[in-house]
């Protein structure tokens, strides 16, 4: 996994609530293997009109955001299906951080497992950030994982919380399986003891 320390980049203000992972990447693309890459698939359906052409009004289609790396969203971003393809579509299209008042639980973890930093900030702060970005398209935001702060276009800083475990993994770029395998002795001990208490289960 790639390391994440500090990111400064253009941020897209995305005003929708309940952006589900079916919107982030439609199901038909999930047959594509991770190693093949998920470039060009982000918001594949919602960024097009009925005829299949790019909808110029959809904010991610605006030229100015072609090199954006942060999204400021509204509540419940990434709800719905557990598909990790949603996180792959985000990273493979250059987005390394999503700021929102709340996230779908599974998607939140999926982002962190792909070197992304999901940032939870108060609804009012998110609304204000989006207003600043709308007023000044192409403005930049900084997400600093070393200080756990977000710096807004107007210079205000907001601190955020992210579990220490995930923070450490992101800062060091550690693979989760390798990390857990360090605890194999504890897992074995648990399994031995489980055999006694849950002896009625046939594995």
């Amino acid at each position: 996994m790639e390391k994440f320390t500090k990111l400064t980049g253009k941020a897209v203000p995305f005003d929708s609530i309940n952006v589900d992972t079916d919107q982030i990447i439609p199901a038909p693309f999930l047959s594509i293997m991770r190693t093949e890459g998920y470039q060009g698939l982000l918001f594949h359906r919602v960024r097009r009109d009925k005829a299949g052409d790019m909808n110029p009004d959809f904010i991610f289609n605006k030229e100015i955001y072609a090199d954006a790396s942060i999204i400021v969203a509204d509540r419940n971003f990434g709800c719905g299906s557990s598909r990790e393809g949603a996180a792959w579509a985000l990273v493979d299209n250059g987005f390394y951080s999503v700021i929102a008042p709340s996230f779908g639980d599974i998607h939140f973890n999926n982002e962190m497992n792909n070197g992304m930093v999901p940032v939870r900030l108060d609804e009012a702060v998110c609304t204000d950030l989006r207003a600043q970005l709308h007023a000044n398209p192409g403005a930049e935001i900084t997400v600093d994982l070393e200080t756990n702060t977000v710096t807004a276009p107007n210079g205000d800083t907001h601190s955020f919380e992210i579990p220490d475990f995930n923070r450490e993994r992101l800062l060091k770029g550690l693979d989760e399986i390798d990390l857990t395998l360090n605890y194999t002795a504890q897992i074995e001990r648990f399994e031995a003891q489980r055999g006694q208490t849950l002896g009625y289960i046939d594995d």
């Binding site: 996180a87 599974i106 999926n110 792909n114 399986i177 395998l181 194999t184 897992i187």
Partner: peptide
Amino acid sequence: GIGASEVAHVLAT
């Protein structure tokens, strides 16, 4: 429910 990376993690550990 879990994501694909977590599926790999559960399978391995």
